[in-house]
Design a protein around this nucleic acid. Structure first.
Lengths: 227, 227, 227, 227
DNA sequence: TATGAATGAGGATTCATTCAT
DNA sequence: AATGAATGAATCCTCATTCAT
């Protein structure tokens, strides 16, 4: 409907490229709108009609980009999940001490929880996904869990974290973090970064061997002995 | 099921009483079944037919006890909420120090979160309630928030709690607690009481002025070194 | 249901009689309440529960007096119909001229239309009755029609009425009368009797041979030549 | 669906136009079917399934054209009402004497009553409409009433009508007319036009100052002095 | 790619009616 | 005679999804 009459001197790939890009942009727009609506009203109350309306398109048009409503739901969840996993990978690559790693995880995860796609991780209902997608979801959740638990275990091993029940500790920390997805409203007193920094120290205070004073903003600089 | 064969000296009210009791028992049975199903499948996927089936009655029979599906949802929520508020009132009446009060709140709330009606407090979607019921729900949530914040404030005032950001502290604690409603499965390694006791000390460790001895479930034992 | 343990000194008939009377009174009360409600809300919108509520009894109690909702509807209609037929018979027995008979019919029918049971004759929907009852209803309507047409025919024959299309004349008169059942509200400016008298002359004015001066209130005194 | 192969000189709007037209035609088809069914069985007994069946579509398809069953009911009523009001406006514009105006109203209204949409005006139950629609309905009925009353009043004023009780006269006339909606069956001996003409003279005979001899068919030719 | 129209599946709700007490 | 509880049948309506254009 657009790039008709492509100027002959341009590579024939460009229109294709730009077309793909346009398509991806529209896909994303749908997801952004949908995740917003799902969070506002819940997955079931939100209708595809409403999603389409907000985008000034019609309902069937959505099916050019997604196979089903559930597909949209799952992709929203996936985006959040990928963001988390990317950060986890980055942090793992930093190869810091257990405590510092944990603090970095907390900070990163807190920030994500304050975003729409992040909140979708904890506010969507797994039961609304198809069986295969449920599995993927649960696997993802487990990976996050594992990242936190591993950091704690490592911390205990490297002496940066006091011995403690790893599972419960991880649950407590993740619970506090996930809750952000429920109470955080953009435009409040605290920015996501402030919350993230506060939680990074707060949630690790009781298990840090050396009273982990506010870990630095951008980087956990505290020279806790590297593993 | 009841006082059939009424001895002649019994009050003529008994049949009435027993009928009322039977009715209340049935109401409760419906709520127990419904809350279970709602937690398993989510409010929208769960159908009244399924609720009725599990109770070996027919769908319209439910309407003898509840006005609508939403009514059932709200009553489930109400039961959980009342349990919490009852405990809050009891704890407030105990008139302990801020820290101890907070620890008692944590312990009580954690235990409730590990029950079905408790979990419904955090796993149901407020958007699924009618406007007036939404208001009631939010008011209830606020009262819980306030109870925790007040305990923290009081603790700061009476010196049992370190100065801290009251709001964020409460959010962190409540988040860890609410998360129990998502991960706790009956029959796991830890009993609700164990979780409750663990969290009571864990979640207050970093803000307790004097090494929060593991507040006794029966007794506070662990001499955790002061900071 | 029966005369168990009849008090020995009283006639065994009296309790039975009075019981039957009580029963009949209740039946009538149900009908009065029902017809009222049916007229207010329409047969389908009116529920038996509401009928029962207004009588301070419960819904199943109604089934002691009637076999079904439709039964109630039909009996309401029957009462109205009987009232009409009784008057028709009386008037026929008076053996007056065609015109006078017609005027008497109009007056009588108008008054009935201004009553609840009368209005039910024209405001209930025949389609809501069972097949046999529909037949009875239609037969009744036909008898009324016939009474009016006969009076007109007779009037033409005896010279008290101008020659005219009998069928259309009857339709016009009955239409005006039936409409009363729709617009008459008790407590208005005009009493049923006033309306009845007015219509008696109004609706016959154009077909009366001799200008039918207001026929007298109690009796159609106008000495139209007797047949 | 049609105008494929658009001749280049045709407006590009045609496909749109034709689609809109198709839509309107379908809407109308639904209304025609529905009004028929509602008249046959009554609004409540008639189900949307049956309406859809008669149209060879499925029930939910109806919701492309109407918001609810009641919406359909109301639109049926509206069509009838508009037909009446259009004729009223035309007749008012003719600016004839009161008597002639009245006769024109009677003739027009009688003809409409013999149509399905006209009959729906008097055979549907106002109580089946939503509150706002009830108001609209009643307002419409009042406008019709007023048209008739005004004609009578004007007739009295201009001397073409004998002094009389305006309200009762209008009731009598409208009653006779409305009754047509109940008894008229297409295919009977009399055509709607015949009925209309008959009633036009019949219902005004008793109040016409100069014995209104059969007012002419197309036009009230009787040289009643123009106002 | 986008749309209007249509569909199938399902779900909550209402209500007359019955039954055991 | 009356009641509370239960039922079965039905109906409206919603919505994700598909299809022809």
């Amino acid at each position: 409907m657009d790039t008709r009459t492509p100027p002959p001197e341009r590579s024939p790939w460009l229109p294709f490229e730009s077309r793909r890009r346009a398509r991806d942009e529209k896909r994303e727009a749908v997801l952004r709108t949908a995740v917003q609506l799902f969070l506002e009203q819940g997955y079931h109350r939100a209708t595809l009609n409403e999603v389409a309306d907000r985008l000034n398109i019609t309902k069937p048009a959505l099916y050019n980009y997604f196979r089903s409503k559930e597909d949209i739901l799952f992709e929203c969840w996936t985006i959040g999940q990928e963001r988390v996993e990317d950060r986890i990978a980055e942090i793992a690559a930093a190869d810091e001490s257990g405590l510092v790693t944990l603090q970095m995880l907390v900070r990163a995860y807190a920030a994500i929880m304050a975003s729409t796609f992040g909140a979708s991780l904890v506010r969507f209902n797994v039961a609304d996904l198809s069986e295969p997608n449920q599995k993927a979801t649960l696997a993802g959740k487990r990976r996050i869990d594992r990242a936190f638990r591993n950091a704690i275990k490592q911390g205990i091993a490297d002496g940066s974290v006091k011995p403690c029940d790893v599972k419960l500790t991880a649950f407590a920390i993740l619970g506090a973090l996930n809750w952000i997805g429920h109470w955080y409203k953009p435009g409040g007193e605290l920015s996501p970064e402030q919350i993230a920094n506060d939680f990074a120290s707060r949630l690790t205070a009781d298990i840090a061997k050396r009273p982990a004073k506010k870990p630095a903003e951008k980087k956990a600089t505290k020279p806790v002995r590297k593993k």
